[in-house]
Design a protein around this nucleic acid. Sequence first.
DNA 1: AAGCAAGCTTACGTTTACGTTAACTGAAAA
DNA 2: TTTTCAGTTAACGTAAACGTAAGCTTGCTT
Lengths: 124, 124
Amino acid sequence: MSKEYSISELAQEFDITTRTIRFYESETLLHPKRRGQVRIYSEQDRVHLKLILRGKRLGFSLAESKELITLYDPSSQNTKQLKRFLEKISERRHSLEQQLEDIQIMQHELDAAEQRCNIALKSL
Amino acid sequence: MSKEYSISELAQEFDITTRTIRFYESETLLHPKRRGQVRIYSEQDRVHLKLILRGKRLGFSLAESKELITLYDPSSQNTKQLKRFLEKISERRHSLEQQLEDIQIMQHELDAAEQRCNIALKSL
DNA sequence: AAGCAAGCTTACGTTTACGTTAACTGAAAA
DNA sequence: TTTTCAGTTAACGTAAACGTAAGCTTGCTT
């Protein structure tokens, strides 16, 4: 049996609140098991949470992250679904490439800004 | 004299609404001139708008983009300010590097998901 | 002169992503 | 046994980022 986690373990590991984790569940992004009424998280759940948080850092909405998780799920789908998923993947790829470009531009701008600052500092 | 833009010109160019542009102004991220009560945007304003939208794509809040614009402004600052700016630059750089890593991971995941989809499609 | 498009202000509405009590439960420690 | 702690549901609150609608002005254009 794979490892199990409590809600506060995950909250600590990822530096978020338990409220946040429960909220993700209420938005059906997570589906922990229950022992009585207490939530038990599997390794899969943990991976899903990781995906959500990574998505967040990339500016994805929860709805988008939810899609990503579905897309990540190797469960059975029909041809039409799979083709839609491939389209989604392509969309995401474009978005990521745009972000990559944005990041590179920003990094250059930060370089330039830093230089200007340092020059200004030296001239004081 | 550098070029001037109307609000709808910019809205069209960047595919946003005029409401959005006015909102950015109300949040003091933009400072267009006025001809009467009509807003006139300079090339600088356009660049600032560009920065804001790039920030958005990277998941920055408007407050953060506002900082970036200030940081981008080569106006006169004292030593303390400049040092704070350098810190901010360093923070941003870390954030961008994290994002870069996230993007790369995601791209690999998309690769894998795409493969799985294609394999599943062929087996039908 | 009349109308229409583009712009303006004001203000309330909406969605997303949680924060924040409140009030309860069950297990464990003192 | 009492308290404490981690967990639970339910519900209302909130900040950010605009959307939307009303009602007004201005500058063409027909």
